[in-house]
Amino acid sequence: MVAMRGTLKGRDVISINDFSREEIDHILKVSDGIEKDLDSKFGLLSGKILSILFFEPSTRTRMSFESAMYELGGRCIDMGPTELTSVKKGETFSDTIKVISKYADVMVLRHPSDGAARYASEISDVPIINGGDGTGQHPTQTLLDLYTIKKESKLDGANIGILGDLKYGRTVHSLVYALSMYGIDMTFISPPDLSLPEEIKEDLDDKKISYEECDKIEEVIEDLDVLYVTRIQRERFPDILEYEKVSGSYKITKDILEGGVKEDLIILHPLPRTGEIDPDVDDTKYARYFLQTKYGVVVRMAILGLILGGFE
């Protein structure tokens, strides 16, 4: 789908890098307007259809898009598990996209291959929203992360620590590029084998964005305004003992927080978590990860509404 730059109507949402800071700020502003007056937005996308194509598992992204579409009065059609579709019969990805783009006004796609969403956008008749492709990008997660940081902390001048699997985590990659637009200090905390890819660090260097790297959360947590935790992915470790050793040392507990953090620190997580944040932390004043999922619906309402012309 090809649309005019400068307006979000008809635009694909493939990579956070396709958007200027002004455009991102506009999406966050529209999200804020929706949150303040949610009830008045019903019916704005009446008659519009969102098709959902997920070639990989998902809970939050899939259901929050559905929720967002229903909140605006639109409807959803879901391809369902690929085992029950023509993909199982050997239909190519491109044919699937061409066919389903005839059924809907906008499409959200998740796929295991990097660049699948960009490719889909070239062959689809309707705008494509990237719901996560491979280890590449997850731009709508990033927009809701930015919204949460803006609402619950600050975007300009914040000191943000990103912890976990920074090598393969697509939410991290998208977020780092977005934060680089806001001149934010970033600290990357990960086991050495799961550090941020060199390519992304080179991109930050090219933009003259400063960042720090370390492998122990205790060394940096007292200086952070925002701690963004991600899952250490078990499947990346050939040896389960190695995984358990590493994952245990990246667990955020009440003890760590009581060791000294800023009063207004907030903790985020794209979820699902698999033990990297102790449930005891949920009730502390720092936890914002469940609120983050709620904001996900509002931000996705803004994205759908802007793409389909429900908002300007």
Binding site: S94, G115, Y119, D133
Partner: peptide, 29 residues
């Protein structure tokens, strides 16, 4: 990258720097 899957996608690179040569895949980045 989707271009390395069995999908007949024609590869496309943006030339970011000519000297030294630096190319970026339009699809996976």
């Amino acid at each position: 990258c989707i271009t390395n899957m069995d999908e007949h996608v024609v590869t496309r690179f943006k030339v970011e720097s000519k000297d030294p040569l630096s190319l970026r895949c339009v699809y996976c980045g």
